[in-house]
């Protein structure tokens, strides 16, 4: 259970990270829009899992909301994970490939 102070700290950090930004006004609009977009997208992606089973979708939705609060602001995490560094890309390729194999082979 997260205590009140740390939650408050997180919210404060989240907000101040916007205010600090990269120092550019038009940069900040970009980051703000990106953040909102990715929030909505994460929610949509979670609800997408209802096509497999509705309870799974609901659980994932709750998990994503929790994750959003934990990781916020997610746009910076996204930016970091989207780096063109070979290690990162290779890591994600392996993860994607494993998920594809696992889902198609043992998903039935």
């Amino acid at each position: 259970m997260v205590s009140v102070e740390t939650l408050f700290d997180k919210v404060k950090k989240w907000i101040s990270s916007f205010v600090v930004g990269r120092g550019y006004t038009n940069m900040m609009t970009g980051y703000m829009t990106g953040e909102l977009q990715s929030l909505v997208f994460a929610l949509i992606l979670a609800s997408f899992f209802r096509i497999f089973s509705i309870p799974l979708g609901m659980i994932l939705l709750v998990a994503v909301i929790a994750g959003i609060f934990y990781f916020a602001p997610i746009i910076t995490t996204l930016e970091k994970e989207n780096s063109n560094d070979l290690n990162r890309v290779l890591f994600w390729v392996v993860i994607y490939f494993a998920v594809i194999i696992a889902v198609t082979l043992w998903g039935r």
Binding site: Y31, T33, Q37, S38, F41, F48, E79, N82, V103
Partner: peptide, 20 residues
């Protein structure tokens, strides 16, 4: 489902990254 998931993620990641 696999193809759709990859497409949706690409679509969204691309456009969010374009914003910043």
């Amino acid at each position: 489902e696999v193809m759709l998931a990859i497409s949706v993620i690409t679509m969204m990641l691309g456009v969010v990254m374009a914003l910043i």
